[in-house]
Design a protein around this nucleic acid. Structure first.
Lengths: 165, 165
DNA sequence: CTAACTGCAAAGTGTTTGCACTCTT
DNA sequence: AAGAGTGCAAACACTTTGCAGTTAG
């Protein structure tokens, strides 16, 4: 939960960033941003749309998408998973961890034993939550994405299933 | 990488499972499964399709999807991320971890301090990989998904952005 | 006043489904 | 032979794009 002060600070910060980047501070943008801020569950664009419609009935889903994208580029919002958009599969059924490149979305495996085991002893889980497994994601940039310039390059995973066969 | 023996064992295991569940062991299935097995990068259905076409030019993308789904249900394959399908957003830009329910896809946040810090000292990362952050995902079933029967219920995240506002 | 933003609708991807034909068992 | 699986195409869901009208600065 966000304190009222922290919430206001976040909104103020957003207004400032809009100014800085020469983007208009519209009511729609404020309400969309607040919707994510206030959301306990990490919302989908559709969720945001539904919530925002409560305050701006005329808003369109397209506007939500456009602004969400703008916010992601600006660093005002973050996406929870780097792997939405398309299903990624694996045949390795033994528990293991992943190293993922935020540039090209490549995923490298790590044996479970290669990462020090997690200590969940003092971790406050939601009431009634039954843990089945823990997975660690080490996020960063792979060698080649660093090479081509560590920018937001969309080198996009050319993953032709690698050196398979 | 998979040793030839392990690969054969996996394929044999797959054949056995097909028998067990009364599903036909078709050439398409074998080749699709092998494509994932051989893939270093975690492939998308499209990646699999491309690779399989090398051996079965007449295969259709629909067949790949159908069989991938079957394999997921059977436990022969696993999906890397629980959050493909739709973008999930957050405004919390400070590093933190997630508790995710594999039933309803709900995501709960954990402060970074609530999980014991990771030790990456002896972790062998891919050459040249620059870590930017680590995120822990604690996967399991939330109280309500356990309640309704801990099966593969598709209660689907009704996430109306929670008690916001 | 001008550039940027909004709403709407049409176009794109990624994925699922229905159906006739074919193949495993 | 019978049921399951395949290929094809149409249908869907999620996201992006183009455009004319509107608004912030």
């Amino acid at each position: 939960m966000l304190t009222s002060a922290a919430r206001n600070a976040a909104i103020e910060d957003m207004r400032r960033r809009c100014k800085e980047q020469g983007m208009a501070f519209t009511f729609q943008r404020q309400v969309i941003y607040e919707a994510v801020l206030d959301s306990r569950q990490h919302p989908t664009p559709e969720n945001i749309y539904e919530q925002v419609r409560g305050r701006i009935p005329s808003i369109s889903l397209g506007t939500v998408y456009k602004n969400v994208k703008t916010f992601l580029d600006t660093g005002l919002l973050k996406e929870v998973s780097l792997h939405h958009g398309s299903l990624r599969l694996e045949a390795n059924m033994t528990p293991h961890h992943h190293v993922v490149c935020s540039g090209c979305k490549a995923i490298f495996d790590l044996e479970e034993t290669e990462v020090a085991p997690l200590e969940l002893g003092k971790t406050p889980l939601p009431k009634g939550f039954a843990v089945s497994r823990c997975s660690v994601e080490i996020i960063g940039l792979c060698a080649s994405c660093r090479g081509i310039g560590a920018s937001k390059k969309k080198t996009q995973n050319n993953n032709s299933s690698g050196a398979s066969k």
